[in-house]
Simulated assay, not measured.
Amino acid sequence: MDEDLLTVTDERSLTAAAETLRAIADQLERGNQLRLEGTDRRVAVPLPDSVAFEVGLELEGVDEGENESVSEREGEREDEHGGEAVNEAASESENESEDEGKQPEVELEIELEWPVAGADAVEVVSTAESSEEVEPAGETDRVDPDRPHEVVAIAPPPESLAKFRLFEDRAGEWRWHLRHQNGNIIADSGEGYTTKQSARNGIRSVVRNAPGASVLEGRPE
């Protein structure tokens, strides 16, 4: 019997989608565990040395070009069933009119499959708000509690009160700062980057690592 371990469906920017895929790719590259967190649960799955890999790109909602018109189909049905075909043809015509208003959509599917030793090899922890303590299913020592930032958050985070701004300074170097909605700059790149892409990578690093960063006190060594 199949079990849906984690599913999140929403709409997000290409940048946000790329960040999620990049974080998953980082875990695959480490080759230890795939750790994902949705809106109500966190899942950890052991990774093998290789996986069955499939990529599919599909165009949906395209008229396949039937040569047979609605009126022709209506005539054939009248011959077979008399007047009963009129209402059926009219209903079909309405449905086709509704379909014509929909734009075609492109669907990209990336599928990876691999075997696991058993159900107890998969760790599922409920993160839903509850007054009761939830015990993880198939608890193991594979998850490092000191590195919670390695869990990939699949569900989108709450809307931030701050925004990153990427800009080119007077010296021709690229910088970024993080500005709160009240106008205060709460973080910046601290240095210039030679390329715009390098500055973007710096922003990605902050977004990815800041949630799990520890707070140190005292003067830096």
Results as ranks from 00 to 15, higher is better:
Asp2Val: 13
Leu21Lys: 03
Leu21Asp: 08
Arg22Ala: 15
Ile24Asn: 00
Gln27Glu: 11
Arg30His: 07
Arg30Ile: 14
Arg30Thr: 13
Gly31Cys: 04
Asn32Lys: 12
Leu34Tyr: 01
Val43Trp: 13
Val45Ala: 02
Pro46Met: 08
Asp49Ile: 08
Val62Thr: 06
Glu64Ile: 13
Glu68Leu: 14
Ser71Cys: 05
Arg73Cys: 11
Arg77Pro: 04
Gly82Ser: 01
Gly82Asn: 03
Ala90His: 02
Ser91Lys: 08
Ser93Arg: 15
Asn95Arg: 14
Ser97Ala: 14
Glu98Val: 10
Lys102Ala: 14
Pro104Val: 08
Val106Glu: 01
Ile110His: 07
Leu112Ala: 12
Glu113Trp: 00
Trp114Ile: 11
Pro115Arg: 03
Asp120Gln: 15
Asp120Cys: 09
Thr127Glu: 11
Thr127Asp: 10
Thr127Arg: 06
Glu133Lys: 05
Val134Asp: 12
Arg142Tyr: 01
Pro148Asp: 01
His149Asp: 12
Val151Ile: 06
Ala153Met: 06
Leu161Trp: 00
Phe164Ala: 09
Leu166Ile: 09
Phe167Asn: 01
Glu168Cys: 10
Gly172Met: 08
Glu173Trp: 04
Asp188Ala: 10
Gly190Phe: 07
Glu191Cys: 08
Thr194Tyr: 08
Gln197Thr: 14
Arg200Phe: 00
Gly202Tyr: 05
Ile203Asn: 04
Gly212Arg: 04
Ser214Val: 13
Val215Pro: 01
Glu217Ile: 11
Glu217Val: 12
Gly218Asp: 11
